[in-house]
Amino acid sequence: MTTYLIRRVAGTIPLLLGISTLIFFVVHLAPGDPTSLYWSEDTDPEVLRLMQHNFGFDRPLPEQYFRWLAGSFRGEFGYSFGHHRPVKDVIRETLPNTLILSAAAMVLIFTIGIAAGIVSAVRQHSFIDHAVTLLSFFFYSMPGFWFGLMMLLIFSYHLHWFPASHMTSLPFRYDQFSFWEKGVDRARHLALPALTLGLGAMAAVSRYTRTSMLEVIRMDYIRTARAKGLSEREVIVRHAFRNALLPVITLFGLYLPFLFGGAVLVETIFAWPGMGRVAVNAIFQRDYPLIMAVTFLSAALVVAGNLIADVAYSWIDPRIRRGEGREP
């Protein structure tokens, strides 16, 4: 197990290096640079050139790359031009918010998704099965951002049920809330964004769980369990569920990049102060250090997520540990 772990972790290093190189060159080869942020009618082009020099944008690209690399090994991601702050401060403030949103979406995806999948597998060909199948098809094919807009229009603008943006009410009001009021306030702000973010993956998980359940139910040991006279409930919960869940776990790692990508859109629609929105702005502003840090970080999180999923999988499925490997 330990060898396997070490091998997997070591394997991620070239991966991350490759990712960072890729981003660096994509970002720097594009025309334009962050100094245009400071442009105005009164700015002399001379001043911009001076700033480019001050920031080192006139150095050869490989030199800039190695500087950046050396910096990031020391945990220094540089200074964000758009935010006038160290990049790590920007990340520290926004990353947790994206994680909150993603975590909430994950919870929705796996609880509702798995529950719907099981129900529709156990009641195969029933009305409820058809309804779940059809709905998940639609949700899976739905543009998430469009769904978000519709939610906003209906539940926020017209019905006033949920707030349209932010994580909490106005800060000075929020501070006066009791513990429970705070919880409710946060949940109300979280509801629409998390649902919008999780919808597609939720549908996929329910489909996947259903298929997986159906396969397991047909297996011999389930028949044996039934034959032994165990109640249907016990069969499902004790035997089928556990085994059907195995492949579903791998989806966890698979959905991480998906969630980060989705967060870009959802945070834009619901004014959620997370990293996705920061990423979009950084890209538009050519804020190199911030783009690099944000993309690198999301890739690193995805790699970590995959690693965790792999380890979890190998822990549940001993064949992996014996070094037979798993073909993803």
């Binding site: 990712i19 994509v26 025309p31 990049p257 870009v264 993309t295 890739a299």
Partner: peptide, 18 residues
């Protein structure tokens, strides 16, 4: 490497920068 990327962010960078 490419799978580890949130595809949308990569695309955004590519399309916005060019």
């Amino acid at each position: 490497v490419l799978l580890a990327f949130p595809r949308l962010i990569l695309l955004l960078a590519l399309v916005a920068l060019f």
